[in-house]
Design a protein around this nucleic acid. Sequence first.
DNA 1: TCAATTCACATACCCGCAGTATGTGAAACC
DNA 2: GGTTTCACATACTGCGGGTATGTGAATTGA
Lengths: 193, 193
Amino acid sequence: MSRAEQREATRRALLAEGRRRFAADGYHDVVLAEVAQAVGVTKGAAYHHFESKLGLFRAVVAEVQRELGEQVAAAADAHADPWEQLRAGCHAFLAAGRDPTVRRVVLLDAPATLGWDEWRALDEEFSARHLADALTALVDAGVVADQPVEPLTHLLSGAMNEAALWLARSADPEALVSAQRALDGLLEGLRAR
Amino acid sequence: MSRAEQREATRRALLAEGRRRFAADGYHDVVLAEVAQAVGVTKGAAYHHFESKLGLFRAVVAEVQRELGEQVAAAADAHADPWEQLRAGCHAFLAAGRDPTVRRVVLLDAPATLGWDEWRALDEEFSARHLADALTALVDAGVVADQPVEPLTHLLSGAMNEAALWLARSADPEALVSAQRALDGLLEGLRAR
DNA sequence: TCAATTCACATACCCGCAGTATGTGAAACC
DNA sequence: GGTTTCACATACTGCGGGTATGTGAATTGA
C-alpha cells in the first residue's frame, strides 16, 4: 500500500470508529485515544489527521449531515410535483432523523458542541437549503401563501428536528405516521386560499 | 446570620453565578472552582450544595425553564379566548426565547448535557404541558381540526425552539414580528374547516 | 452552661484525558 | 544511495472534575 493509500485508509478508519462512538456514547464520553486504539493506531495519528477531538467530530457531523441530505433529496426527487416533493422530503426527514446516529450526532450533540452558527451552516448546506428552495418555489408559484420564506423555513426545520428526536424515543410504531400526518396538516395550512 | 440562612445565601449565590457563567460561556467552558471563587467560597462548598457540576447546571436549567414558563403563561392568561391564549403564549415564547440565557442554557446546552429525556421532562413540566393543554382544549372545542395532540405539540414546540434560536442571532429587528406572523400562519392552518 | 454533635464549608489530593513536543523509520524523491 | 518527507509512535504537560478528609463555628441537649 502506498503512503497516500495508507493515509486515506487510516483517516477513514478513524472517521468510521469516531462515528460509531460519537453516536453510541455522545461527544463528551468518547475518548480520542480509545478511538485510535480501536483502529490500531495511537492518539498521535488521530492528531495527525484531525486537528483535535472537535475536528474529528466536525468531520463526522458533516458526513452524517451529507448522507441525511442526500436521503431527503432522493425522496423528494421521486416526485414531479413541487408540493409533493416538499411533502416527500419532509416525510423522509422524519423517518431518517430517527436513526440513532443522526439523532445523537446531528440533532443532539452538534448544536451544543460545534456551536449554533456552525451547526446551522452545515444544516443550511445539506438540508435547510433544499427546504427553503422548495418553499420559495411554491410561494413563487402561488401554491403557498405569499410570505417571507426564511422564518417559515426555520419554523419547519425546527419542527422536524424536534419531531425526529421525539419519534426516536417513542415506543409507538404508529408515531411516525401520526407525526407525518400532523406535519401534513401544518403544511396544508400554508396553501394560498 | 443563622447557619440555615448562611446556607441558603451561599446556595443562591452559587446558583446565580453559575447561571451567569453557563449563559455567557456554555456548560463546557465553565470551571466550577471559578464559580465558587467568584462567590467567595471554594470548590468544596459547591460540592456541598450540588452533587456535581452537572447538578449545578441542572438547577440553573430548571430555574430558567420555570421563569420562561411563567412568562409564557402570564402572556396567555392575559386573554380570555382560548385561541388568543395559544397565540399569545406562542408569541411570548418566541420573544422570551431570544434572551441569551434562555438561548444558551435551555435551548442549546441543556439537551446535549442533561440528555434529551431529562430535558424533555423539564420542558414538559414548564412549557410543553401548557401548549398541549391549550391544543387539547381547542381540539375538544372543535376550533382546531380533530387529530392526535402529542405529535402536533412536539412539532410546534420544536418549531418555536428553533425559531427562537434563529431570532436571537438575527440582526433584523423585524425578525421577531415576521416569525410571529409565520407562526400565526401555521396555527391558522390548524383551524377546523 | 458546657460538652457533644452537627454541618457548612476549606484543604489537599487523585486521575482521566485533551493537547503538545519530539522522535523514528520507512517510503518518496532527486 | 543519499536526502527529504511524512505518517505515524512515544513521552510528557496541564487543566479540571471529583473525592477524601480536616476544622471551627453554630446548634443541641442535659
